[in-house]
Simulated assay, not measured.
Amino acid sequence: MILGFFWVLLAAIMLGFYAFPSKYIKRYEVANLWGSFWLFAMFIVPVLASFILVNGLGDTYAQVPSSVFVSVFFLSLLWGIGNLLWGISISKIGMALGFSLLIGVATLVGSMIPFFMGNMEQLQTPGGMVIVLGILIIMGGIILNGKAGLLRESNESITSDSSSSKNMKTGIIMCIVGGICAAGFNLSYHVADNIGHIGAISQEQFGNAPWIARLAVMLPSFIGSGVVTVLYFVYQLSKSKSWNKFASIASTKNIVLIAIMAIIYVASLIIYGLGAYNLGPLGTSVGFAVFQTGCIMVANLLGVFSGEWTNAGGKSKRFLYSGLLAMTGGIIVIAYGNFIS
């Protein structure tokens, strides 16, 4: 269990840092950067890694009912939609509030629904109830974080006119819907591994290590999400007539940096899957809550150290630190609940 929590927290830290190389990408429009990133992250990196590393990939999938792949594909499409809605909404409400809202909603939906997808009996045990309590404590911390973000936006006069106020409301709605959709990532993983047993087949019949088996589990999810995100950015590139940016002198360096971002991103999700596997039957509930919470904490701490909260005001910072403290407490409660279950 300790190893499982270690993997999940490591995955959260990696996901919090994966976009850092984008600061050094030059002469690309937003569509060039993120269109290329999603192509690498959803198709090139996971497909190549799966075919190179996973033994018996096709034979593994041949033993899984087609209904499982249909469910995984649908849920991963939602994951892709959630990614896009979040990207659009942060331009309206800011990174701090957008990150907290989307991950908060995704945490609640993505952590609780797996209880009702084959683990209902666990929900009624002392361990299951403690885990739910931990999730609720984390949600309280996320709400405090969201309040801190709103106060910060107010102090920085981002919502000073009616147009900005309308953008804020639209952005919040998009972020909430995006959070519900983004939970599709964890739910698709739960269906593939806990219901389709792809990981177990890959390990037991073809001798793959647990972390390599996670590639087999997650590959269909990457493909589903990639269909949505890549098609969207193809449309954006055509609309903005930005295809020629790929011919810029900085393109080789940019593509290398984007490939590094994609490798870190995919590795973080695979490591999360390994952590959820080590956490046992409730791994997709316990692990996802810790994973998402860790991402919020890393993002906010990076924001503090980079000066994002310098002009936020004392009240906003108190809400921020209270939220981080509550989320830390929630992780501890969840760990205890998983231990006694």
Rank of each mutant, 00 (worst) to 15 (best):
residue 210 P to V: 03
residue 234 V to I: 15
residue 228 V to S: 02
residue 96 A to V: 15
residue 50 S to R: 00
residue 160 S to G: 09
residue 1 M to Y: 13
residue 61 Y to D: 01
residue 113 I to V: 15
residue 322 S to D: 14
residue 81 I to W: 00
residue 265 Y to I: 09
residue 328 T to C: 12
residue 39 L to D: 09
residue 335 A to Q: 04
residue 118 G to N: 05
residue 72 V to Q: 02
residue 301 L to S: 10
residue 23 K to H: 05
residue 335 A to E: 07
residue 142 I to F: 03
residue 248 S to R: 06
residue 225 S to E: 10
residue 130 V to E: 07
residue 184 G to D: 12
residue 94 G to S: 10
residue 61 Y to R: 02
residue 213 A to T: 07
residue 34 W to M: 08
residue 140 G to Q: 02
residue 204 E to I: 05
residue 212 I to M: 11
residue 192 A to Y: 00
residue 330 G to E: 04
residue 70 V to N: 00
residue 214 R to A: 12
residue 241 K to R: 08
residue 324 L to W: 14
residue 220 P to D: 03
residue 131 I to C: 11
residue 205 Q to I: 06
residue 182 A to F: 15
residue 319 F to D: 11
residue 332 I to H: 03
residue 214 R to T: 13
residue 341 S to K: 02
residue 313 G to I: 09
residue 163 S to A: 14
residue 305 F to L: 14
residue 125 T to Q: 07
residue 134 G to K: 00
residue 120 M to K: 08
residue 45 V to G: 01
residue 53 L to C: 08
residue 278 N to C: 06
residue 59 D to M: 07
residue 290 V to W: 03
residue 333 V to Y: 00
residue 302 L to R: 13
residue 144 L to K: 06
residue 174 M to P: 02
residue 183 A to K: 03
residue 318 R to E: 14
residue 256 V to P: 03
residue 333 V to R: 00
residue 12 A to F: 02
residue 58 G to D: 06
residue 316 S to H: 05
residue 296 I to H: 08
residue 80 G to D: 13
residue 288 F to E: 06
residue 217 V to D: 04
residue 314 G to I: 13
residue 9 L to D: 10
residue 264 I to H: 01
residue 116 F to E: 12
residue 106 A to L: 03
residue 338 N to L: 03
residue 249 I to N: 14
residue 235 Y to A: 15
residue 238 S to L: 13
